[in-house]
Amino acid sequence: MLLGFLAPDTGRVRLDGLAPRAFVEREGVGYLSELVAIPREWRLVDALRRYAVLDGVPEAELAPAVEAAIARLGLEEHRGKKIKQLSKGNAQRVALAQALLRPHRLVVLDEPTHGLDPVWTQRFRALVHELRDPGRAILIASHNLDELERVADRVAILDHGRVQRIVDVRAGAGAPTAGRWRVVVADGAAALAAHWPDAREVGSATWELDVADLPTFNRTLGAAIAAGLVVRQVGPAESGLERQFREAVGGVAP
């Protein structure tokens, strides 16, 4: 709907005061769709040239823009390949490259890390960081809450087609200070059990316990460490965003 591909059943969409198609046809949008559809017979470099032409990249800047996009997404070794020869992850990177051929005021990325390997998932975060600009809105649609918590400023939780809640991740509004926490024990689990009689072992050397507030939790943890507990890792059992999501959509606690 933001790009005017579909019309809303009710209400209206406006971008900078314009109907979506008028906005898109005026300045374009950096768009990555969930379904990556690029003609399979096109060569990677030609695909980016075509999209750059349509995106209005001037002829003189076309080759540098395409080469920059290829380098930015690490596609140098695949540049001569046809789209059908690329893996899902590489095709996803081509799709991301075409969205970033030219700076846009609006960038819409639908499930951007879908199909990316861990290295490129991490690189994607850096890309989003590079794209951050006061004059640019970046909208990411994702089911990956961990990813969103790392890259987004605000997260709108949608359920049944409606915004259920908007979480301000920057303000730390989602960071839990109480609830269920998880402690990974390196040694001295008996000391942990002694200080938290209700603690449950949920995996190999991983314990879950209920935290009422952070000061009490820190004091008790300190006492347990003094009694011989060696901690490898400690943190909330679910992220603040996960908790907010569960609350917003009425899900059951893990």
Binding site: L3, G4, F5, V24, E27, P39, L54, D55, V108
Partner: peptide, 14 residues
Amino acid sequence: TQGFARFYFAKPVD
């Protein structure tokens, strides 16, 4: 139907 229109018409194209 094949979805190619998505990228074409995210560009400033009528």
